[in-house]
């Protein structure tokens, strides 16, 4: 990820948050309750942003810096371990 190439043309380098902290786009935020989670990882694979991170023990955590609040994770969760709540007004 950090390797730089010695080329004449202009190239872009990979960076997390290339468009800044996209979490600021959010209107609804996901609330994850660990005790309900059955570790099926559907939220992880269907997250368009890769903001649902897979932990070593197979559970998940949500990166709120980049979560755009689309709600796919809550919608694909069969046990309702993720629910969406409106963000408080800043």
């Amino acid at each position: 990820m950090s390797k730089k190439y010695n080329v004449v043309t202009s190239i872009s380098y990979p960076k997390e948050g290339a468009m800044g902290k996209t979490g600021s786009w959010r209107v609804f935020k996901p609330i994850f309750s660990k005790d309900k989670c059955v570790k099926c990882l559907r939220c992880w694979i269907f997250c368009p942003e890769g903001a649902v991170k897979k932990n070593k023990d197979g559970s998940v955590s949500i990166d709120m810096d980049y979560c755009k609040g689309c709600g796919i994770c809550a919608n694909v969760c069969n046990v309702k371990a993720i629910i969406m709540e409106r963000e408080e007004q800043q």
């Binding site: 990979p14 960076k15 997390e16 948050g17 290339a18 468009m19 800044g20 902290k21 996209t22 786009w25 570790k39 099926c40 990882l41 559907r42 992880w44 694979i45 368009p48 942003e49 890769g50 903001a51 897979k54 197979g58 990166d63 810096d65 980049y66 755009k68 609040g69 689309c70 709600g71 796919i72």
Partner: peptide, 20 residues
């Protein structure tokens, strides 16, 4: 789903619409 590799090549914070 749990057998799919962990490595991410699409980094978080892209310009995609929510729900893309």
């Amino acid at each position: 789903i749990k057998d799919l590799p962990d490595t991410e090549y699409v980094l978080a914070g892209s310009a995609a619409c929510p729900g893309c």
